[in-house]
Amino acid sequence: MRRLILVLAVMAVAASAAAAPRVASIGLCGDQIVGALLDQSRIAGLSHQADDPALSVVAARARNLPLLPASAEAVLMAGADVVVANRFGDTKTVNLLQKLGVPVLRVDSAESFDQARDILLRTGDRLESAAAARLLAQQVENRLTVLRRSAPKVPPLVAYYRPDGGSAGTGTSVNAALEAAGMESLATRLGMRGWGRLDLETLVMNPPQAFAISFFGIGPYSARRSFARHPVARHMLATLPVIEVPAQLWSCGGWPLIEAAEFLSRHHHRGGEP
């Protein structure tokens, strides 16, 4: 009897595995969810950027998976039942796939931890791996609690910069990660909302205690390095503590934001590297 139950259970698991949809991702936002939640057998492919360790948190996994160009034909041939795409871009490909009856989930880049959790849970639900999504969301929640406990009493003032001079104010993923790490974003203190530019003059007038920079090391990806090249910025970057956050942790806002926040916190405790 026991053996019969075991056989039935195995058959049930096998049947549910067979019924679970195979998923393809054609953007970085999808890659980090699909790559984190699903078994190898259920991934029809990840995006062509997924194996780039400078942009993708699932680069190591992606090396053993098919990488798909964002084209309807490639997705169909990979045998995907569901496609996960970024919220913006590849409009024609997404329209065509939907027209051909392949459901496409458009995934936003989250701008807060709450939004990242909602996106993770909702996408996990739609991809029939709700349990894995709930587990990951809970882990992120626990790690956030730990971070908040170790936050400095007076939040250090940190200026976030990309090489083109772009910064991040309230309502952005970068601001959320800085806050979680117990820091205050200079752009936020100056009243910036959303993504924008923090010009050099403002920076000189309001010197931060440290810099958090990202995307500086990725040569070919940053054609506009006007900020990074300016002597004033170079001088400030050389004299103040600088935390260089790996770009893949927030290239698309999502669950890896917790890793960005932990990275910031860890390196702030070490004092950053001028």
Partner: peptide
């Protein structure tokens, strides 16, 4: 998206 679209393409048109 705008920049890429302005570059012109026939990919995945229906």
């Amino acid at each position: 998206e705008i920049v890429l679209w302005l570059l012109g393409s026939l990919k995945d048109r229906s």
